[in-house]
Structures are given as C-alpha cells and as structure tokens.
Nucleic acid binder design. Structure first.
Lengths: 249, 249
DNA sequence: TTCGGACTCCCGTTCAACGGGAGTTCGCTC
DNA sequence: GAGCGAACTCCCGTTGAACGGGAGTCCGAA
C-alpha cells in the first residue's frame, strides 16, 4: 500500500501536506497538494477532504484550499512561541524606537532559525526575513547566536551537513563557522556583514535561560556599513529585559 | 474497534488531542491527555508518541508534553490570520498610542470571536481576552460587529442556540440581540457596556471586504463609564486603513 | 466536439492502527 | 521497606478503516 519505504504514518503525511504550503503559495488545489506531497490522486482528494472536515484546511469558493484558521487557533496553544513573543515584544518595540531599523525575534527550530516576530521600520530598507520565515543557522546573525549557545549535538549536526551559501560573504566552511561560534560565545553577540543579504549587516544577541542556553535571539538588520554600537547596546539591554520577563512570567 | 459511534477519524482525534491544551494548561502528561480526549491509556501513549515524533508536540525533560513549535510554524502558513495581522498591526499601534487602552483584533471562527492580536496598555486595567482567546459573538463587542456583518446563515445558527450569559448585562434574548445587530448595521459600530466584564465597555468597528462582510473586528476595551467618542473615531480610521492595506497587499 | 485536468465515487484488498493486558519504573505513604 | 497507585512501555492477535486503482462526472479550453 504505502510505497514509501520509511515511516509514513498518517501524522507524517498530514505534516507533509501542510508543508506543501509556503508563504508564497498559500492556496492550492487538492491535486497540486497531492502532487507535491507525492500522493495518488484519489488519496490526495480524500485526505484533503478529511482535513477540510476537521477544519485544518479551509476550502474557498472554488475548489482551492488554504491552511485553516483552526490550525492557527490550535497552534497558539503552543506556550513557547506565544510566551516568548509576549515577553519580547515590549523590549523589541523599545529597540526599534531607538535604532529605527528592522528588529527581529528568532528561535531555534528544526535546526533552522525561525523568526517569530519582526518589527519593521518604515525608514529602513527591504528585508528578506518575514514572520514564520526561516534562515540557516550558519548564515543569519540570529542563527549564529542560537547555534553558539545551543547543545553540542545541534552544532555537530548542523556543521556536518553542507552549509548553504546565500551570498559571497556567507561562511560555508565548517572550521570558519566554528571559530565564529567560539567568538560569539566569548563576546556574547555577533555581527554578520552580508551573510544573508549583500547590502545589510545583521547584529544579534542571545536571550539565555538559567542554564545558559539561548532560548531566542534578538537581532537588528542594519545597512551594510552602518555603525553597530547603538544597536548592540540596545539589543543587550533588550535581551536582559526579556530574560527578566521570562523569569517573572 | 472504534467504540465512539460518530465519525472519529485519525484527524479528528488529532484535533481532539490538541484541544485538550488550553491557554492555562499548556503542558500535560500523556495520561492526562488521554483522559481528557477519552482515549484508552495505551492508545493515548502511542498517539502522543507519534505526535512527538512528528514534531506536533514537544516533550520536555520529564514525560510532560506541550504543543510543538512545528505546529506553530505550520499554522503560520495560514495566510488569512497572518495577512490580517500584518495589515492591522500598524493601525492598531496608532489607535493604542492615542487611546491608551487595550486594542484588539478579532475574526469570526467556528461561530466565535477569535482574538488574533491584542495590544495592551500598561495604564489600562486588566483584560479578559488574550491572543488566541475566544468569546461568544453575542457578548463581545468584536463579536457583535462580526455577527452583524456576517452571512445570514451564521446569524441564524448563533441566535437559535442558547446565548451564554457572562455578566448580568450580557444580552441573552435572541430578539434583543437581533435588534442590536440591526442597530450595528445602521451605525457601523457597537458599544457593549459590561457585556463581557462588568467593569469595562467594549467599542468595536468592522473591517469590511468589498462585499460588505466583516472580515475582522477592531475593538478597544474602556473602563465602564469612560467616554467612547475618541476610541470610536480612532477605530473608524484604523478600520479604513486596514481595509486599504488588505486591498493593496 | 474532443481533450485534459480536477474531482467524486465505488469497492476489494490489506496492513497499520487498535487496545487489552502484562510488565516496569517511580514516587508516595504508612 | 513493603505496599500501592499512577505513568508509562511493550507485546500481540484482531479487525475495520484507510488505501488506491479505476471508472465516471463535470467543466473549460482548444
């Protein structure tokens, strides 16, 4: 029946189906989903029907479906993301007001940096990241602090896999990244010029828990050659504020 | 096998499991989940294990589990909630800066008002609603505008079911609510004194689509006897801004 | 009118999920 | 430290729900 050799439970497939949706592809037909998830047509239609019935997908006027609000409502029961966001927002607003550039909050998820929140500044330039967007840990400034203060196991896993190059400046040599991580641990911050986007520099600091691990990263995206001192100072203060808020909450 | 008589697919059960989590109960043991979802012990443990493997639940140090970040990441592929939130946030920030009270964004979901976002004001009092929280449509000011500009079918469904009383002031007579809805349609806003919480008054306006239906509601929570004129004016402006942003986006 | 794609329905096959039950671990109480 | 209960894991025979090939419908484009 299942032609796929490795573990393919109903739950796995559900996740696969949901993952066919991306920020730029938010509505699809059942047939498209089936093709992308590798399901036979009749199965795809049945599964999509089930998910619509359960409210995890919404069917619009025509046959097209999108990820359902129900799922959003269920997901917000995720205490971690929500609590982190709540704890960080006030501090992020302060940073953004002073630095007047994009201010971001990211966490480590599935060996990538997942951006939970972003405050944009109208005067600031364009920005690649978006809420719920992801970037590789070795490239984004947020990712580097997350990685620097993560479990050794995560570091090994990430560094033994090929490191994707986003720009000419992206470090893709594991040894280089290792040196950067050591430096990050020493300084408590990272400055990543052009790693993600040639015209901008990311500045990031960790939000750490009692055990010293980074539970999140706060970052600011500056123009490539802009001074970083103010951003760094603000981020440090914000990180401490978030740590206090998490401890208190 | 399935002892439950009515439709009980794997997907349904997955949703039931996730729904055992609430904003105040964000971590549970597998056994607790099983009890609350009405599953036999061995099944509960197996199912929870599967969900953890799929990343939809996270297991912490001990045996306890919480809703996984993975789910959050999947859910944010829900274009509707995310786009609405993005479109509304700037306008909400303006309202909050001027009115200096809790400012909220809600949408209609599963015949309830689902709060997508809330900006709290430190000077403002306590507030019942929370992000991802829900309130009945006939009680919350947001709910009333959502209901007033919703499909007739939704209105009938809601009004033919018993209307829950939250405070002495909550309207629970369908005829009264109908009159209120007509009024809301005429005025384009609603003022709900004490319906949800005796000490506060909700003021809400609809964000409408091209067809005139409410796609969301913006609201402000004021102290019970506070003047509402400023809030109303700000909300109206904000709603128009959100409508423009949605149209442009 | 034909063609192709999206979708629905049907139905025989089959295997993965089911859950009872036994066993293990842990922490608490007396 | 014996006894107890709860949480959890593992095993395994049963079975019915999910599977998916295939045929049929609908619709729009060529």
């Amino acid at each position: 029946m299942a032609n796929s050799p490795t573990g393919d439970s109903v739950t796995d497939r559900l996740v696969r189906v949901l993952e066919t949706f991306t920020p730029t592809r938010t509505v699809q037909t059942a047939a498209e989903i089936g093709r992308r998830a590798g399901l036979p047509s009749s199965t795809a239609h049945r599964v999509v029907g089930d998910l619509v019935a359960a409210g995890l997908l919404d069917r619009d006027g025509d046959g097209r479906v999108s990820v359902g609000l129900r799922l959003w409502a269920l997901a917000t029961r995720s205490s971690h993301a929500l609590r982190m966001r709540q704890a960080a927002l006030p501090a992020m607003e302060r940073v953004q007001a002073r630095v007047r550039e994009h201010t971001q909050l990211a966490i480590l998820e599935q060996d990538e940096a997942l951006f939970l929140e972003r405050l944009s500044h109208p005067e600031a330039g364009a920005n690649i990241t978006r809420i719920a967007g992801r970037l590789p840990l070795h490239a984004a400034s947020s990712g580097l602090v997350l990685l620097a203060f993560a479990d050794r196991a995560v570091q090994e896993r990430v560094l033994t896999r090929p490191l994707r190059r986003l720009t000419a400046a992206t470090p893709t040599d594991p040894a280089t990244v290792r040196r950067t991580l050591a430096e990050v641990r020493r300084l408590g911050h990272v400055i990543a010029p052009g790693y993600v986007d040639v015209v901008s520099t990311g500045v990031a600091v960790p939000v750490r828990d009692a055990a010293g691990r980074a539970t999140a990263a706060l970052s600011v995206v500056l123009p490539r050659e802009a001074p970083t001192a103010l951003a760094l100072e603000e981020l440090r203060g914000a990180a401490r504020a978030v740590e206090r808020a998490l401890g208190a909450g």
